[in-house]
């Protein structure tokens, strides 16, 4: 499964568009990490716990999107976009969407 965020894929040709596919997840970190993040608001800097959380969550949303694309019989998802929304305190929704397509390599 190839994922790209362009409409065209260099070296390939789109032979069939299967439709829009999407995946999402809402995640929260345990209270300990939230407390640590509260301390970080004093000294500033990166909130490593949240970075990890969002990276994992984004992977999961992407996997769900890929699973849907596989079910449609696609071999690639083009024009992938990500969106993040803060739902409640300490929780975030990660959303990935794109167009499932069938790609064919271009000869020469």
């Amino acid at each position: 499964m190839m994922l790209v965020n362009t409409e065209e894929v260099p070296g390939y040709r789109v032979v069939e568009i299967k439709g829009l596919v999407q995946g999402n997840t809402v995640r929260a970190k345990h209270i300990g990490k939230d407390i640590m993040a509260g301390f970080k608001n004093i000294v500033g800097g990166e909130l490593t716990g949240y970075t990890e959380l969002l990276t994992e969550a984004r992977l999961q949303a992407t996997e769900r999107m890929v699973a849907e694309a596989e079910r449609l019989g696609a071999n690639a998802v083009t024009n992938v976009r990500f969106a993040t929304t803060s739902v409640t305190q300490g929780a975030a929704e990660l959303y990935a969407y794109g167009t499932a397509v069938v790609l064919e390599p271009v000869e020469g």
């Binding site: 790209v4 004093i42 970075t51 984004r58």
Partner: peptide, 29 residues
Amino acid sequence: KRLPAGTGPVATLGMAAGCCVVASDYFKT
């Protein structure tokens, strides 16, 4: 979205992503 015309053979490898969460410090806030 696309490379300039005349760029040599290209292999598409997939998506790359990087993420970073930062917090403001007390002084900045």
